[in-house]
């Protein structure tokens, strides 16, 4: 009987610890709101989200983050344009075409890409890529939306690739064989059978990849140029949401308007990624492959 009591205790103990993650998430939300909501004493939600001017240190200060939001969205979309094809194509190559030997080499490369510290990528964008695109495109500054997107794409590819690869890999062999038996080439099978069958997994991969890109800080802090204005071209400097928080927290006096405004930006950023994650969760749950009958 003693062991039974211990077992019950252990069970409850593990349950309590397992609740830690959700508690942490809850605390994060609570603190973002405690520190972020007071900014609404100074501006309305509408002025904050749709205001075009971000001059937090002026007197009176302007707290409009539209240009920051647009900066984030543009940088993320542009990086998506580069990273999605590259990531999905690499995944198809790894899962379907590459010989096991080649895959054994390429997979660790993708993993190492994923583990590259973001500050190093940002640094690389700053000191190597910026002068390079400045020269090639003959533009005044190399630190701009294009540079940051390129670097972000480098960070999003591994996420997109590895999750897509899992999805492609889990397509039942029977489907593939059926297509081959009908005289389809390997490529036709990939395009018409394998990709449609793994589409929900690929979508999840893309959403999570973009979610990672929109929340990434160091790259956009170092390589995006940092101008809080609505971009007119891909070679304009931008100041995405995370960059604003990271760059200004040092100079924002504790408990002041600016401090609260930065936490409010944190809320907006959190909401963005939270929605991305819920969407990914929904897509993978709702459209998950059930047996072989989901084509």
């Amino acid at each position: 009987m003693k062991r039974q009591v211990i077992d019950k205790g252990v069970h409850s103990g593990f349950l309590l610890i397992a609740l830690f993650s959700i508690t942490a998430l809850f605390l994060i939300v609570v603190f973002l709101f405690i520190e972020g909501i007071p900014i609404l004493d100074h501006v309305s939600i509408k002025e904050f989200v749709f205001g075009k001017y971000w001059y937090p240190t002026d007197d009176p200060a302007d707290f409009g983050i539209l240009s920051l939001i647009l900066g984030s969205i543009c940088v993320t979309l542009l990086s998506g344009i580069m990273a999605i094809p590259l990531g999905v194509m690499t995944a198809v190559y790894l899962a379907e075409i590459a010989s096991p030997k080649v895959a054994e080499i390429v997979k660790p490369i993708v993993e190492l890409m994923a583990s590259m510290p973001s500050v190093v990528i940002g640094f690389f964008g700053m000191v190597v890529v910026a002068p390079f695109i400045q020269q090639v495109f003959d533009i005044p500054v190399g630190l701009n939306m294009f540079n940051a997107s390129l670097m972000l794409a480098f960070m999003a590819v591994p996420t997109i690739c590895s999750i897509s690869e899992d999805a492609i890999f889990s397509v039942p062999v029977a489907l593939k064989e059926a297509s081959f038996a009908l005289g389809a080439t390997h490529f036709e099978t990939i395009v018409r059978v394998i990709i449609p069958a793994s589409l929900s997994g690929i979508c999840t991969a893309v959403i999570l990849g973009l979610s990672r890109a929109i929340g990434e800080t160091m790259v956009v802090l170092m390589a995006a140029g940092g101008a809080a204005m609505i971009p007119g071209s891909i070679f304009d400097p931008v100041r995405p949401l995370p960059a604003s928080i990271a760059a200004e927290m040092a100079e924002a006096p504790f408990g002041g308007e600016h401090y609260h405004a930065l936490f409010a930006i944190g809320i907006v950023l959190f909401v963005f990624t939270f929605m991305f994650n819920l969407l990914a969760d929904y897509v993978s749950y709702k459209f998950r492959q059930v047996g072989e009958a989901s084509l």
Partner: peptide, 23 residues
């Protein structure tokens, strides 16, 4: 619980920074 873990994984690193600072 899984929803919590998945969303925790998706929280931007700078938001963790904000939380750490405040908490």
């Amino acid at each position: 619980i899984r929803l919590g873990i998945n969303n925790l994984a998706g929280v931007p690193s700078i938001v963790f920074g904000l939380f750490g600072l405040a908490f």
